[in-house]
Simulated scan of single mutants.
Amino acid sequence: MPDIPLIVFTAMGVDPFMTPMTSKSFLRDTMNPFNTAKNATYTKLADSVPHGEHRILPSAGHTTIHTDSPDEVVEAVWHLLDRAGSN
């Protein structure tokens, strides 16, 4: 991976597109195997670059991160722009 600023989000909230396949209580459980694997995978991705950062969004769904956590997304964009401008 190139040495670039990277912020990886892990959405730990209920994704509305997953509810037809499984229960909301399962999706909310941060220790279910799906969430555990997702968290570990995204941590490794962020750790794969020198300036990678992993941010967990407890109430955002994967496909709805931008609407569930818009302030966090905008903050991350500004953070990346600041980092890219300082290189």
Rank of each mutant, 00 (worst) to 15 (best):
M1S: 13
M1P: 12
M1R: 09
D3A: 15
D3H: 10
I4R: 01
I4F: 04
I4A: 13
I4C: 12
V8H: 05
F9C: 08
T10V: 09
G13R: 11
V14R: 04
V14H: 03
V14N: 02
P16V: 04
F17P: 02
M18R: 11
T19N: 03
P20R: 02
M21N: 13
T22H: 03
S23W: 07
S23P: 03
S23H: 08
K24Y: 00
S25Q: 14
L27M: 14
D29A: 05
D29K: 00
N32M: 06
P33L: 11
F34H: 11
A37N: 10
A37D: 13
Y42A: 04
Y42I: 07
T43S: 11
K44V: 06
K44I: 06
L45C: 03
S48K: 04
S48L: 07
V49P: 10
P50D: 06
H51N: 13
H51G: 09
G52L: 07
G52Q: 04
G52T: 03
H54G: 02
R55F: 06
L57I: 03
S59A: 14
A60H: 00
T63D: 07
T64Y: 05
T64S: 09
T64H: 03
T67W: 08
D68H: 03
S69P: 01
S69Q: 11
P70D: 03
D71Y: 14
D71E: 11
E72S: 12
E75Y: 07
A76V: 05
A76Y: 01
W78C: 12
L80C: 07
L81I: 13
L81Q: 11
L81K: 08
L81Y: 07
D82K: 12
D82G: 13
R83D: 08
A84F: 15
A84C: 07
A84S: 12
G85R: 15
